[in-house]
């Protein structure tokens, strides 16, 4: 009966102190190099974030090598906090983080459970604890990603149930470090206030990673990748217009980095579709995949307005 058979003990005997471990070979063996290459390829910029990810991977690899020589150390705390402005790729990196930790054998399953305040905090007394525990159970063996974590703590309402969720989280983060990794994410200033009000969190979160805003070139590169993934290209004039669009949009309020770029391109696609539709002539494949300058220049950003989906009856398309 296979349900009761136990694996034979696979623990390798402690290697003699003179033996050497090839860390580079270990690195290749875990398949991490592919993950990092993918990371470099798919994510523009974010140099400090990538650097920190490599550091964490190196630490875990070295820990594994140390274990082979019998140099046991307590497994490191890997709870993290991602701070940064909207659209800087926090969720995307969290997803990769789960995969990296799984490849390194730090988490057993490597799935990512994304939650916000609503999923953790209940609506009436006695509702919060089971809800939070339910989520924690689901996340065990993987990574729990709490988006906009600062909402958990609402100082203005002293009877808020968020505090209860925080206490349970802290307890599990401390006692079951081997079972799950918690990643908190949010805007820098609000997270700062959150940590200030909950010092227990700050000390239990070992890695504070700040996501920088993208530069204009990086935003441009992101736009190119988004279009490439959707099988669109920009005409040279459109590219020029898009570069101007980015520099204007960056100065405006509610700028959300990568997300704003995605939205701008979605709106350009709308205009392109409309342009092709109203042109009243047969279209070629080239027409269908090219964004022209006018599709981008029609944005209200160029006339000083804030860009958003055009309101019905607006003056600009």
């Amino acid at each position: 009966m296979d349900a009761i058979t136990e694996d034979p003990k696979t623990e390798a005997p402690i290697a003699p102190a003179t033996e050497a471990v090839d860390l580079a070979a270990e690195f290749a063996e875990t398949g991490l190099s592919e993950v990092f290459e993918e990371l470099d390829r798919d994510l523009v910029g974010l140099a400090p974030v990538k650097k920190r990810l490599r550091e964490i991977a190196a630490l875990l690899l070295v820990d594994r090598a140390r274990a082979r020589f019998g140099l046991e150390a307590a497994s490191p705390t890997l709870h993290m906090s991602f701070t940064g402005n909207p659209g800087t790729g926090k969720t995307t990196v969290a997803l990769r983080m789960a995969e990296i930790l799984h490849r390194l054998g730090y988490v057993r399953k490597g799935h990512l459970v994304t939650v916000t305040r609503d999923d953790l905090v209940g609506q009436y007394i006695g509702h919060t604890a089971p809800k939070t525990k339910e989520i924690l159970k689901r996340a065990m063996g993987g990574v729990l990603f709490i988006d906009e974590a600062y909402y958990l703590y609402r100082p203005e309402n002293e009877r808020d149930y968020g505090q209860e969720a925080i206490e349970i989280l802290l307890q599990v983060m401390e006692n079951q470090r081997d079972d799950l990794v918690v990643i908190l994410a949010g805007y820098a200033d609000r997270m700062e206030r959150f940590f200030h009000a909950n010092p227990g969190f700050r000390s239990r979160v070992a890695h504070h990673i700040d996501f920088p805003d993208y530069s204009e070139e990086e935003l441009n590169a992101i736009g190119g990748r988004i279009l490439g993934a959707m099988n669109y290209v920009m005409s040279p004039k459109a590219e020029e217009a898009f570069a101007r669009y980015i520099s204007l949009r960056k100065e405006q309020p509610h700028f959300a980095n990568g997300r704003s770029i995605r939205n701008a391109l979605d709106r350009a696609r709308l205009r392109q579709a409309n342009r092709l539709f109203t042109a009243g002539r047969p279209v070629t494949a080239q027409d269908l995949r090219t964004l022209e300058a006018e599709d981008i220049l029609a944005s209200r950003v160029f006339s000083g307005g804030i860009d958003s989906y055009p309101p019905i009856g607006g003056t600009h398309p």
């Binding site: 057993r108 399953k109 079951q176 799950l180």
Partner: peptide, 17 residues
């Protein structure tokens, strides 16, 4: 005890309960 654990992926979650 509690509810059936349909969506738990790792034994640690069940051991917790």
């Amino acid at each position: 005890w509690g509810l059936p654990m349909f969506d738990v992926k790792d034994a640690a979650g069940v051991m917790f309960e």
